[in-house]
Amino acid sequence: MRFMMLMYPGTKGETGAMPDEKAIAAMMKYNEELANAGILLGADGLQPSAKGARIRSNGGKRSVSDGPFTETKEVLGGYWMLQVKTKEEAVEWAKRCPLGDDEMLELRQVFEMGDFGPEIAKQEGALVDKIGKRLEENNKKSASS
């Protein structure tokens, strides 16, 4: 299963100031640990909301409001995409993230095809596309010979 790990850096994420060297090093080390464990699918840090915009729809009419957004506590600062076996595993990894006092992590499970229908989920992985299958059989053949 996949979890998106969202970072809410609090007010300081909006200043645009780069974190200090020590914090960067700690975060790099953390990301490396995620990658070494084979669970990191992707990650990005986000620039201050002043460089972004929010789009809403009201009665079919779109309105665009440029950043910065006012409720800075709720502004996203970055995200990771993790592939883990259980929610507890995601929580355990999140607890290891170097986190400042004002910062918060949020874990959200990602919808996957298997979540859309139990029958499909059960049978998912049941069949192999033609070329893939022949290759696999070949692989097994050559492995056993």
């Binding site: 990658a35 070494n36 464990a37 084979g38 592939q83 049978q123 992985g125 696999e136 097994k140």
Partner: peptide, 30 residues
């Protein structure tokens, strides 16, 4: 492949083998 060839009605542990293999592969690559 064991995970990829899981069939209908299988325990979810079978397709999960694909993720186990991917994780092992990614660890090996690092």
């Amino acid at each position: 492949n064991e995970g990829y060839s899981a069939t209908a009605g299988d325990d979810w542990m079978r397709p999960a083998l694909c993720e186990d293999a991917l994780r092992l592969g990614r660890i090996l690559a690092t």
